[in-house]
Amino acid sequence: MENIVSHHTDHHEEHEAHESIKIDGFWLFLVSDVLLFGALFATFIVLRTHYAEGPTSQDLFDVKEFTIETFVLLTSSFTSGLATLEMNKGHVKSLITWLIVTALLGATFVGFEIHEFSGMVSEGYKMSTSAFLSGFFTLVGTHGCHVSLGLIWMIGLIIQVARRGFTPVTERKLSIISLYWHFLDAVWIFIFTVVYLIGVM
């Protein structure tokens, strides 16, 4: 009997070691994602003033809209942090609540972005208008795709946690999505600065 018990804990530890290694890999994925955004930023910066015949960034960006958008995303990062705290305390229900709040804020952010993009397109300012707009739509849109994928992933995780509670696997997955979410927040701060703030200056 004793033997079996000790074996069991061994397996458990092995499992946890295995889960922590997945978090290491995710950090490396984030490194590669930083470089992906780095290349997009470099392209945007090179083409930033290539307006061709199209509108300039001053014509297009609405300070109020992108400021609210930024605050929404920053808040979602904060609530995602609160969710992690609840996980560390072992509260499944409040964790799920905070994750739902985070997802709603994320969805609001994506809504703002869709609104901004569709507004531009309806005025005839498209990806094909100028190199500047190609760079803008691609950089900001790539971030938006990341957030949208994160939302689907987060909903999937909420269901898994609701079903299974905290296990080494769900805890690992929760840690990873919170890393991902904070990362997207950090990228947005650069987009906010490089694209929007410098753009309206």
């Binding site: 392209t43 083409l47 290539h50 307006y51 061709a52 015949e53 199209g54 990806m127 094909s128 208008t129 100028s130 190199a131 500047f132 190609s134 760079g135 739509f137 691609t138």
Partner: peptide, 10 residues
């Protein structure tokens, strides 16, 4: 898009 084209600022 006009990243690498010869026109529209690419």
């Amino acid at each position: 898009a006009h990243f690498f084209t010869m026109t529209h600022g690419g």
